Computed example of a mutant assay.
Amino acid sequence: MLVIGAGLFVAAVGGIVGAAQAATAERAPFGKLADGTRIDAVTLTGANGVSATIISFGATLQSFKVPDRNGKIADIELGYDTLEEYVARPNYWGATIGRYANRIAGGHFELDGKSYQLPLNDNGVNSLHGGSMGWDRLPWRIVSVTQGKVASVKLEITSPAGDQGYPGTVHATATYSLDDAGNLVIDYDATTDAPTIINMTNHAIVNLAGEGAERGVLGERLTVPASRFTPVNAKLIPTGEMRPVAGTVFDFTKGRVIGDGIRDGKDQQIVYGRGYDHNFVLDAGLTAQPKLAAKLEDPQSGRVLEVLSTEPGVQVYTGNFLDGTYVGKAGHVYRMGDGIALEPQRFPDTPNHPAFGSAELVPGKPYHHRMIFRVSTTR
């Protein structure tokens, strides 16, 4: 592989992305789609050994390698080794999700007095993650690859009006940037030529012990600075309530081991989700600068992952629908609890719940979501 590009990508994250030695970017072929479209992989590497590989199919984080407390590198991102597997058995892992992340009830919403119907790709009852051909299943164009104090790759996609039932032509970009301190910054931006809705996130499913590790994530410790969550019905659609987490298995405000509550069938919400598959209402709300949305710690490896975001919610999903039929990297069979997704977002089904705020995107007012995966270790 050849190192591509030169120059400097300047990122202002309130001191999060600081001085570095030299982060590198390498671009290489990752395969071709059936129509001949070439898919490339760009690997960003920092001086501390952290690396992230992004493929242009779905603007997907295909690999995220980080050291443990002893310097041993492991890939913590669940996924596949080949493009053919991503195409044949899609499961969102690591992908950029759009137009609308999470579920929309009945695939239906109204905007400016008009009614819109989206594909019912969630068990025939809801629209999930942008529809049956969401942005996770499409090729993105690589706009630029840079290296220097920060290594980065920028990708873009244009979604025409009517795509998956959504109004407005939307142009979106996903920019991944890695520094030498272990900060992987993801900037999602979008514009439209007509009113529509938008909710972009990354669906990374991680295991700090390493993808495919036998012990899964149930022994890892999760902290979420949210005093409320949005309970769901049996179809995993929010009821509209924002319920206090105090005294429940959803209280992660002071940190708790994931396995402590994931099988607590006395809580109907756990039964509905088959574990955790819920949106948490972040106490800080929608912010101009990224704030902590979740912190994951693995006591055995010492790896720590902090997820920061400007969005008001974070979906916690414990891989409940991984049933052993998905064979991922290095032939690893993925099962329930083998990974966890921490997805910053607007709340699920926001277009149908005015109390949740707005997910509307209008001409002249661009959408921007900055999220950060910050990795470190503890002794």
Rank of each mutant, 00 (worst) to 15 (best):
L308V: 01
D283S: 13
I270V: 13
D277M: 00
K291E: 11
P299L: 08
A288C: 08
V314L: 05
A293C: 05
D283K: 11
G273M: 06
R303Y: 02
Y272K: 11
P299G: 08
K254Y: 08
V281H: 14
Q300R: 08
D283Q: 10
Y272G: 08
Q289L: 11
T310G: 11
N279G: 15
D260I: 04
Q268Y: 11
P312I: 07
G302N: 05
Q300N: 09
Q269T: 05
L305K: 00
L292E: 13
L305D: 00
D267Q: 11
G259T: 11
R256F: 10
V304S: 05
Q289H: 12
G265C: 12
E297G: 00
Y276Q: 03
D277T: 10
Y276C: 01
D277A: 10
V281E: 13
L292N: 08
N279T: 15
I262D: 06
A294C: 00
K291T: 12
F280K: 03
P299I: 04
I270N: 11
D298R: 01
I258D: 14
L292I: 06
Q289A: 14
Q289V: 13
K295L: 00
T310W: 09
D298P: 04
T287W: 08
F280S: 04
L292T: 07
R274I: 00
Q268E: 15
G275M: 04
G259Y: 10
S301H: 02
I262H: 09
T253G: 05
L305S: 03
R256M: 12
R274F: 08
D251I: 06
V271G: 10
I262F: 08
L282A: 11
D298I: 01
L292M: 13
A284S: 14
R263M: 14
G275R: 04
G273I: 11
D277W: 09
P299N: 08
R263D: 14
T287G: 05
L292V: 01
E311Y: 07
K266W: 15
G302V: 04
R274W: 10
D251R: 09
G261F: 13
L296T: 01
P290I: 02
F252H: 11
I258V: 08
K291F: 07
D277Q: 00
R274Q: 10
I270L: 12
D251Q: 02
L282K: 07
D283R: 09
L292A: 07
R274C: 01
I262A: 14
R256D: 12
F252V: 05
G285A: 15
T310F: 12
F280R: 04
A293I: 03
D251Y: 09
G302I: 03
D260K: 14
P312N: 10
R303L: 00
R303G: 02
K266Q: 15
V271Q: 10
G261I: 09
Y276M: 04
S309T: 14
K254F: 02
D277Y: 04
T253M: 02
Y272Q: 09
G255R: 01
P290G: 05
K254G: 08
E306S: 03
R303V: 01
K266F: 15
G302S: 06
G275N: 03
K295H: 07
R303N: 01
V281D: 15
E297V: 13
G259S: 11
